[in-house]
């Protein structure tokens, strides 16, 4: 035991706790089981340890010790690879895949959460060492508040308006509102689609959003989330029953065609509104220099 024992223990505990609150299981269902969670808690514990010992190392003038943080960086980049590989492998067995853009977003979140743990531990240990445990607790509360507030990005509800739209056939062409979705030849399939299908139209609220919702990865994310939350009427061997999103080239609206098992339009609109806006899909043409001149 020395003067650093308690601050380090405090920092490690808070860091691990921070990782724990960032590890929620929701409709994305990952990680759900204890084994998957243990992996992330263990890595969070390691990250917390690294963050905590950094401050005493500086206080003892062991500046070279800080270089081990670079090892941490490469370690956690590995976490991102691990998540990406697992999710991509599983994606081919999903009835409605997540898509690579969504997976990349999840993988990035997993990596960055470990860095957030490092910062949390670093700040709390520092507060403990410089001031005392009470101020360290205040710093903890601030850190956790910041984590919770900025952990999630915006959702589709912020950038588009969602309305239910009619699903109809013009000959063999399937339409949602006036947006062409696909060609369905067989009358039996057409009947199934009229029976089970639902259509929604997403209207962008501004010009930037047009390119964001046009992104194929973002569209796949919408389909995946709706299918997870409301079920999907689909099976291998029925390729005609496929949820799809197409774009109206005139005004940038997108037509969402889904086959939910729970045909509740209000719920579906709620689900679509809460689909995360994928970081990799965000485009901001209004920020370009050409627009401002």
């Amino acid at each position: 035991m020395n003067e650093y024992t308690y601050p380090i223990l405090f920092g490690v505990t808070i860091g691990t706790f921070a990782r724990m609150i960032m590890l929620k299981t929701d409709y994305r269902q990952y990680p759900t089981y204890l084994h998957g969670k243990i992996i992330h808690l263990a890595l969070g514990f390691i990250a917390a340890g690294l963050g905590s010992v950094a401050v005493p190392a500086i206080m003892e003038k062991e500046f070279t010790a800080i270089t081990f943080l670079t090892i941490a960086a490469s370690q956690f980049r590995e976490v991102r690879n691990m998540e990406r590989n697992t999710l991509s492998e599983m994606d081919s067995y999903e009835l409605v895949p997540r898509g690579n853009t969504y997976i990349e977003g999840i993988a990035v979140a997993f990596e960055s959460r470990n860095y957030l743990v490092i910062f949390t531990s670093l700040l709390t240990t520092m507060a403990y060492l410089v001031w005392n445990i009470y101020l360290a607790l205040v710093v903890t509360v601030i850190c956790i508040y910041v984590l919770r507030k900025y952990m999630s990005g915006s959702t589709l509800g912020d950038i588009v308006s969602v309305e239910e739209a009619e699903v109809s056939f013009d000959g063999a062409g399937l339409y949602v509102d006036n947006i062409y979705i696909m060609n369905i030849g067989l009358p039996i399939r057409q009947k199934e689609i009229m029976k089970y299908g639902m259509g929604f139209v997403l209207t962008p609220k501004n010009f930037d959003v047009r390119s964001t919702i046009a992104n194929l990865g973002q569209r796949q994310a919408i389909l995946h989330d709706v299918s997870v939350s409301l079920g999907v009427i689909r099976d291998s061997g029925t390729p005609a029953l496929v949820p799809l999103i197409k774009r109206d080239l005139d005004d940038g609206r997108i037509g969402v065609f889904v086959l939910p098992q729970d045909k509740d339009a209000k719920k579906a609109i709620k689900v679509i509104r809460s689909v995360p806006v994928l970081e990799n899909a965000i485009r901001m043409p209004s920020e370009s220099k050409a627009q401002n001149k």
Partner: peptide, 15 residues
């Protein structure tokens, strides 16, 4: 025939 082939070939029949 188209309905059968659709299921067998795992493709979509288009008109």
């Amino acid at each position: 025939v188209a309905a059968n082939l659709e299921a067998i070939l795992d493709g979509i029949s288009h008109a």
